[in-house]
Design a protein around this nucleic acid. Structure first.
Length: 591
DNA sequence: GGTTTTCTTG
């Protein structure tokens, strides 16, 4: 057995150890309570709080607040810990509320007054909220206490005002600080303030006037990032070339700059040149491929990452972009392996990763697995997992379940967004439930104040078309706000016409198309159904006369985890002869 | 006793 002081020391050591997981922490916490170390021993309690807010698996806000509320007389450090935790959380406003509690309760306690650490956290919260009034109030409070002269606070103020769009106030504070009070962060804050406000020429002038000895790596990085964000990738590159010293962030910033400008190949060249790639470098490049509709490139880069001699541990972002590449390709087997990887490495399945997993499984038709991932997510779930789960159910033909889940989401107090309603409405359209679709559409506008867009209207058109109410669908489209009427809407209707073989409505819809796109097959079906074989054959020439080339039919299949991509007319695939041989055999057997 | 600000991925 341990003596009580030995136990205390042991707890403190474990709380500081990087090997302590949150699960193990709960055990330590239980021991501390049992042995009256918590909450009586204020120092131990503060260490526990600090552990929970900076746990490697992410801060546990609710638990942190529970611990904090049990500390009898929190000192400045404890308050600061809790305020910092909220400032960096999804709820920065809570840190301002906590600060109010702090000044009310600390009027007599000397060891619980705000200090020079407190203000930067609060200013960060204001900056993240773009809360000018709160920021100004806080600034006034600081001036009253003479707490506005610390360089961290000055930098925080410059940053806060810039984030709130008060760039002139930032500049006034900056000029006042240029009397020896400033450091390199002061300059960086002012520069990034200008750049984020789109004032790139003012930033350039300030940068040129800055003494070279003041310029740190971050200063240069800020410039590269700012220029590239405003499409000035060439100016960004010039800055990059002039740098005396670069770090990984420099390389990553330039690479991402090229990605933003759509120059994926140049970005890849930069990536290949990075001397010491980190997880961000890899994730950013993989994401670029995924979002640039090159999911195969994304996956092969991930393979390379795993095989690379200078091994970099994939992080949550890496995993998310790999999963969304799998989703694009419908590569479930591959996605499952990523899922295994997540579990093997005990990575925390947060809302973002969870959403990516659900989406991957649902879009690949594995609705049961999607559901079980959804159920395993920690409560409260934010709107994203709910949304992909609802859309996934709808897409797999489980309309009733999708709507039931939507109501469950509403009853938990989660506010649906426009994407959620696309899922809800598509559940209705798949079932041909016109009345429900209309009902949800008005719920969307009247209760949630969301303006329906093209996709939402499209679902109603689809629902009407599915049950054969084609002329009603036409009048619905014509009553829609003009700007949301597009080819997709008309094509939806053409699709329904091809099911019901309605020539009149389909011709009406086709006349309203801007591009003729890929409707050739649909259109010839409509004519063929009505025995108009000549017109059916002509559909292709109509299309060509509009100057549109038909995109080749495409398909992909996953075999043993590898994705094979095909398009019609392709002759170059490695086993093309085997494939044609197989087709011959199949045809023979059918006959 | 110890925590802050500026740059890169989702």
């Amino acid at each position: 057995m341990f003596s009580s002081s030995q136990l205390r020391t042991r707890c403190l050591v474990l709380l500081q150890s990087s090997l302590t997981t949150i699960t193990f922490f709960f055990q330590i916490h239980a021991q501390m309570i049992r042995n009256h170390l918590f909450p009586a021993d204020a120092f131990v309690a503060r260490r526990a709080l600090e552990f929970v807010v900076s746990s490697p698996q992410g801060a546990n806000l609710n638990y942190a607040l529970k611990i904090f509320d049990q500390i009898p007389h929190p000192n400045t450090f404890a308050w600061n810990t809790m305020i910092r935790c909220y400032a960096n959380s999804p709820f920065p406003a809570c840190s301002l509320g906590l600060f109010n509690r702090m000044i009310r309760s600390s009027s007599f306690a000397i060891d619980a007054k705000p200090n020079s650490y407190t203000y930067p956290f609060l200013l960060k919260a204001c900056a993240r909220l773009s809360a000018v009034r709160e920021g100004e109030k806080l600034h006034g409070f600081m001036v009253g206490l003479g707490a506005d002269t610390d360089v961290f606070s000055i930098n925080g103020l410059i940053n806060m005002y810039a984030a709130c769009g008060k760039i002139n106030s930032s500049r006034l504070l900056f000029d006042a600080a240029l009397t020896g009070k400033e450091d390199t962060v002061t300059w960086n804050s002012m520069l990034s303030g200008y750049l984020n406000s789109g004032l790139i020429n003012l930033a350039g002038k300030l940068f040129d006037s800055m003494p070279d000895r003041e310029k740190g790596v971050v200063t240069w990085n800020v410039m590269i990032n700012g220029y590239s964000r405003h499409g000035e990738i060439d100016r960004a590159k010039l800055i990059f070339n002039r740098m005396p010293k670069r770090n990984v962030e420099t390389w990553n910033t330039l690479m991402v700059g090229y990605v933003r400008c759509g120059l994926l190949d140049t970005a890849r060249k930069v990536f290949d040149e990075i001397p010491n790639r980190n997880a961000v470098s890899w994730s950013a490049m993989i994401t670029a491929y995924t979002q640039g509709d090159q999911p195969n490139e994304a996956l092969s880069l991930f393979d390379e990452m795993e095989k690379s001699s200078c091994f970099v541990e994939p992080n949550l972002s890496t995993v998310v972009s790999v999963l969304s590449a799998c989703t694009q390709l419908g590569a479930v087997e591959r996605g499952k392996r990523v899922h295994d990887y997540i579990e093997r490495n005990k990575m925390k399945v947060d809302s973002i990763v969870g959403t990516a997993l659900i989406d991957m499984y649902a879009k690949s038709g594995c609705i049961e697995t999607a559901t079980s991932v959804f159920k395993s997510l920690k409560k409260p779930k934010d709107v994203f997992p709910w949304t992909v789960m609802i859309s996934g159910l709808a897409a797999n033909g489980h309309g009733f379940e999708a709507l039931a889940l939507f109501h469950e989401m509403e009853s938990t107090g989660v506010r649906p967004n426009r994407i959620t309603f696309v899922g809800v409405l598509s559940a209705c359209s798949h079932g041909g439930w016109v009345d429900s679709a209309m009902k949800y559409m008005s719920l969307m506008t009247e209760v949630y104040g969301l303006e329906p867009e093209s996709e939402h209207y499209g679902c109603i058109v689809d629902a009407l078309g599915r049950v054969g109410r084609l002329t009603e669908a036409v009048s619905f489209i014509e009553a829609m706000p003009r700007r949301w009427i597009n080819d997709v809407i008309w094509l939806t209707l053409v699709g329904s016409c091809s099911f019901y073989g309605d020539i009149a409505v389909s011709e009406y819809a086709l006349k309203r198309l801007n591009r003729f796109g890929d409707v050739y097959v649909l259109v010839s079906n409509i004519y063929a159904m009505n025995g108009r074989w000549v017109k059916a054959r002509n559909a292709r020439s109509i299309m060509e006369s509009k100057g549109i080339q038909k995109c080749p039919g495409r398909s992909s299949i996953e075999i043993a985890g590898a994705v094979h991509d095909f398009h019609s007319g392709q002759k170059s695939y490695g086993r093309i002869h085997d494939i044609y041989e197989m087709i011959r055999i199949i045809n023979f057997r059918i006959r």
